[in-house]
């Protein structure tokens, strides 16, 4: 079965840790980065098309990171997961190129179902049937 890779970007180590554990248990291969810069480095070497970005990060925020990633990966599925959702307008997320956004705290079941649906969508695009996660 083809490896299903996910990238988590969040400056809070404990959040990276719990998201990574939850998604790993669901069968995904999870990379994580503490900053936008680290995330871009990872994406240079790894082919990852499903991502969860925190928004409120030092140096490069999630919106900016999404804009940059979008340039190279127009077909990636990128989701914002933020404690600051209400500070942004829907158009902010759309303009940056997010496919959707979720408010923290997000339940792990929801996080997994978003990942499942994302890979389902990917497989659908490429004509492959969704594999078990």
């Amino acid at each position: 079965m083809r490896e299903k890779k996910i990238l988590i970007v969040d400056d809070e180590p404990d959040i990276r840790n719990v998201f990574q554990k939850a998604l790993s248990r669901a069968g995904y291969t999870v990379s994580s980065a503490a900053s936008g810069t680290d995330a871009l480095e990872i994406l240079k070497t790894e082919q990852i098309l499903v991502m969860f970005f925190d928004l409120n990060m030092p140096e490069m925020d999630g919106l900016e990171l999404c804009r940059r990633v979008r340039k190279d990966l127009p077909t990636a599925l990128i989701y914002a997961v933020t404690g600051y959702a209400s500070r942004f307008q829907l158009t902010d997320f759309q303009e940056a190129g997010f496919d959707n956004f979720y408010s923290k705290p997000i339940g792990l079941a929801l996080l997994r179902s978003v990942a499942d649906a994302a890979f389902g969508q990917m497989e659908g695009r490429t004509g492959r049937t969704p594999g078990p996660c």
Binding site: E12, I15, V18, F19, A22, G83, K104, I106, L108
Partner: peptide, 9 residues
Amino acid sequence: NQPLQVISS
């Protein structure tokens, strides 16, 4: 919301 995320997860 950040610590809440960690606790609930």
